[in-house]
Nucleic acid binder design. Structure first.
Lengths: 203, 203
DNA sequence: GTCTATAACGGGATAGAC
DNA sequence: GTCTATCCCGTTATAGAC
């Protein structure tokens, strides 16, 4: 590929930046360091990504592309409610464990660009819940589950899944966990979330 | 007071910075601007608060001292579990509605200081849950509630309360809400959270 | 379109003299 | 405690090579 948006250099820069961000934290990595490790000139880096924040955003959007489809599909799949919820919680958690930058990225983007809704588009695309809401309403009509606001329920579901990743350092400090114990806590948490959600739906 | 930690200059700097942060947003206020408006030299400001981030942190910690006490006391109060949970959800939500910057502040500070969570003393002090955990275990022994991991339950509770405030712009965009409608959503949410938590505890 | 070199500016942080 | 000078970093700009 020789076009501006798919060049090897561009990809190399994104990969290098991604590694450094994960290893050292976004704010402890300088643009000069990224450029140097990728073996390119600093000016070239700004040629491709006008700013560090923009680079960050593009890395994030790529993550969404890789994992987003997986998560999005589940809510629209033809599955019984309980299996669907279990699969959603497990899959979403898997993605967040594999990609530790995701939650901090989303939150910093939301926070920094609160006024610029268009930038939230790729995040928003994750949350197409029409089929899921419809399913919740239908099951409620049949009396299989409690009659509950689907929007509130969905927000609760993603809160339970995502928030612990947002405050991971705080949880680790609070409970005195090392990274393995933290992983176990998040592992156990899948079941806990599933139980909570099903208990909420029980009529 | 002429000591380093209580000097008039120090307080003046914190007040000035606080006003500017609220008025213009943290990222749009420079340290030179704060120092100038407070009538002190830039280096003197760094003498008191080694960095802008540290200044931010101290302002934040001061600002949650009052509300923090309110929230902390509830978990340790002598109250039946259901009343306690209802009061906690309502009080915490009230605090977050009153100061919408609180959650973004906490998260950005956690995010920036991932390895140094201990520095967030005031945040950590909010989460002293020994009495609450003990109460959960005792009620479970009596068979009044389901036997559930108190730590997971507490994390779930604060996730349900806090996370929607962290993604407020996204929810507003997603549901097409103006600020009044958003306020109503958060108002309705108190009851929804309470129902969820009680359903989870039901044996 | 891709890449290098270099200079400059503004903002945050620091050393050291007083 | 206070101030000057300086440095580092993100960013912008320019001029030019392939």
């Amino acid at each position: 590929m020789d076009t501006k948006h798919g060049s090897a250099t561009r990809l190399k820069l994104m990969e290098t930046a991604r590694e450094l961000f994960i290893a050292k934290g976004v704010d402890r990595v300088g643009v000069r360091e990224i450029a140097a490790k990728a073996g390119v000139n600093l000016s070239l880096m700004n040629y491709y990504f006008q700013s560090k924040e923009n680079l960050l955003e593009e890395i994030f959007e790529q993550s969404i592309k890789d994992n987003g489809q997986k998560i999005r599909q589940i809510l629209n799949a033809e599955l019984p409610l309980d299996s669907k919820i279990k699969l959603y919680v497990n899959t979403y958690t898997d993605v967040l464990v594999e990609d530790p930058l995701l939650v901090p990225f989303v939150l910093s983007i939301i926070h920094r660009n609160a006024e610029q809704a268009p930038r939230l588009k790729s995040v928003h695309s994750l949350y197409n819940t029409e089929a899921f809401s419809k399913q919740l309403r239908q099951e409620a009509e049949k009396g299989h589950i409690r009659n509950i606001d689907p929007e509130q329920f969905f927000i609760s579901m993603i809160s339970l899944i995502l928030f612990p990743f947002a405050i991971k350092p705080l949880i680790a400090y609070r409970m005195g966990l090392n990274s393995e114990e933290m992983a176990k806590f998040l592992e156990d948490r899948r079941e806990h979330i599933y139980i909570m959600l099903m208990a909420t739906l029980r009529p």
